[in-house]
């Protein structure tokens, strides 16, 4: 599905993985992350999104298939994994799985220290990451005294402080309120603008449609469709197979067309674009 290219930061080919007990998790996944990517890994619960992400940073080793990092075959020895994690950061779905240190500041300092940076640089990176995530005022708080949204941001700060080339986020918006989601997406935009390639997993079709530049649709351990969101998320057959539905904005556009209101192209990507799209469509009777 993905054309292998030398420019890809991570390139997975034909990944297979089976959970203990023989339950298949991945059955032949091809996936590539290129510089500047904004990819949404979209699928229902149990489709294999988390397992793909865990492979992309070397936390899991495929039972079959290959992974390349910057064109080179990925290794799983200590030194290779160290290099891998320096380049590819993964934010786990449950922030409590990631936060361990006494305070938020100490926790965020953990990754940069592991990179072997001198202490002044570590302090600078921690300060930057805390400010980027808007949690500078929580620096001295212990993890168990944070709200869920604050924990989530602290966990992301811990990875952002390592300045990876690729940032993988497992269900980063799950459990966040709309304001929290908005803040998170703004932070991701800033990271993308600074050149970080982003891959997030979600089952939220509206989020994927509004945010991603590429959508990879997963079902039962395979990527069944990959491409621009307006193409993948208008593919009803693939969506049905993945157990998902059309994004609301695409649904509206389809309805408007079916009712003969408009034939305008392309579909609006964000709610804010909808009015402009409808105006340009010269709605009958408007």
């Amino acid at each position: 599905m993905t054309v292998p290219g030398p420019e890809a930061l991570i390139e997975a080919h034909d990944l297979h993985y089976t959970f203990a007990g023989g339950i298949p998790a991945l059955s032949g996944v091809d996936f590539a992350v290129r510089p500047g990517a904004r990819v949404a890994l979209l699928g229902a619960n149990g489709a294999g999104k988390t397992t793909v992400l865990l492979h992309l940073n070397g936390s899991l080793k495929p039972s079959r298939g290959t992974l390349r990092l910057g064109g080179e075959m990925a290794g799983y020895d200590r030194a290779a994994l160290m290099r891998w994690r320096t380049r590819v950061g993964l934010v786990l779905q449950d922030p409590d799985d990631q936060l361990f240190a006494g305070t938020v500041y100490e926790d965020v300092s953990f990754g940069p220290l592991n990179l072997g940076l001198p202490e002044p640089d570590v302090h600078a990176r921690v300060t930057f990451a805390l400010e980027a995530l808007g949690i500078a005022d929580l620096a001295a708080r212990p993890a168990h005294m944070l709200s869920f949204g604050q924990k989530r941001r602290a966990a992301i700060a811990g990875i952002v402080a390592m300045r990876p080339q690729v940032l993988l986020l497992d269900e980063p918006t799950a459990g966040l309120d709309p304001h929290g989601v908005g803040q998170l997406l703004a932070t991701l935009d800033a990271l993308a603008a600074a050149g970080t390639a982003l891959v997030l997993s979600t089952h939220d079709v509206d989020l994927a449609y509004g945010w991603a530049e590429t959508v990879a649709l997963m079902d039962r351990g395979r990527i069944i469709a990959e491409g621009p969101p307006e193409a993948v998320l208008a593919d009803d057959a693939a969506l049905a197979r993945a157990g998902l539905r059309r994004p609301l904005l695409i649904e509206l556009a389809f309805q408007a067309r079916a009712a003969g209101l408009t034939s305008a192209q392309p579909f609006p990507r964000r709610a804010a674009d909808l009015a402009a799209w409808l105006r340009s469509a010269q709605i009958v009777g408007a």
Partner: peptide, 24 residues
């Protein structure tokens, strides 16, 4: 189970077996 998942969480941050952190 939480402990096992935290192990992954630590290793994704290039944990070398030591849990060194800094504070202001």
């Amino acid at each position: 189970d939480r402990g096992r998942r935290m192990e992954i969480g630590l290793s994704t941050r290039a944990c070398t077996g030591e849990l060194r952190t800094l504070a202001p």
